[in-house]
Simulated scan of single mutants.
Amino acid sequence: MHDITGKRVAILATHGFEQSELEVPLNKLREAGAEVHVVSLEPGQIKGWDKKDWGRPVPVDKTLDEASADDYDALVLPGGQINPDLLRVETKALSFIKDFWTANKPVGAICHAPWLLIEVGIVKDRRITSYHSIKTDVMNAGGRWENSEVVTDQGLVTSRHPGDLDPFCEKLSEEIREGRHERRAA
């Protein structure tokens, strides 16, 4: 992991996030020196999904009403089937994601989280990986889907599945350390 001391990272999630896809980046990025906040729709706790059943709750640090992309250097979007499906109908969540992208800040998305990238229109002409079941969704949105563990395209870091998230965290920390990314028009 790259040293990202002093950087601030938001993890946007709600109930039904895949447990490891929130907890592993949360812990790894904190170990690398970042201040990491879990941002959600409501205060309190959100409950994860751990493979085949409900997992552990995770405390919410800030609600979307309290958070702004201006306060952070990067964004992480955990997957799971439930979490991104619930978030992609929430206007505030979509605006939050779009604000990071518009500001040229790194965005990381795991597994099913590219659904959120599709919803905000940032997949077109980008190299992306995702869980295989949403490959067609990515391609229909104009993304160039790759069957790779991790794909990076101009500050956008995507991971195929929640297996070993170390390569995803490594690439994301590298992108965070590099800072803002000028992006060519899609």
Rank of each mutant, 00 (worst) to 15 (best):
2 H>V: 12
106 P>A: 04
173 S>T: 08
65 D>E: 05
85 D>I: 03
94 L>F: 12
76 V>F: 12
24 V>T: 10
58 V>Y: 09
10 A>G: 07
165 L>V: 13
29 L>V: 10
88 R>I: 02
111 C>N: 12
123 V>W: 00
26 L>D: 02
144 R>M: 06
119 E>N: 06
70 D>R: 12
128 I>V: 14
80 G>P: 08
4 I>R: 10
176 I>W: 02
83 N>S: 12
81 Q>K: 08
150 V>W: 15
101 W>K: 03
154 Q>R: 14
119 E>T: 07
136 T>P: 01
69 A>K: 02
57 P>D: 12
88 R>N: 09
163 G>Q: 12
133 S>H: 01
146 E>W: 09
96 F>S: 09
18 E>V: 06
8 R>W: 13
50 D>L: 08
181 H>V: 13
99 D>I: 02
77 L>V: 14
163 G>F: 12
55 G>R: 06
129 T>L: 08
20 S>W: 03
70 D>T: 11
184 R>Q: 15
124 K>V: 03
28 K>E: 11
162 P>H: 13
178 E>D: 14
98 K>D: 09
124 K>D: 08
154 Q>H: 14
81 Q>D: 07
48 G>A: 15
60 V>G: 06
102 T>K: 08
79 G>E: 15
122 I>D: 06
137 D>S: 01
107 V>K: 05
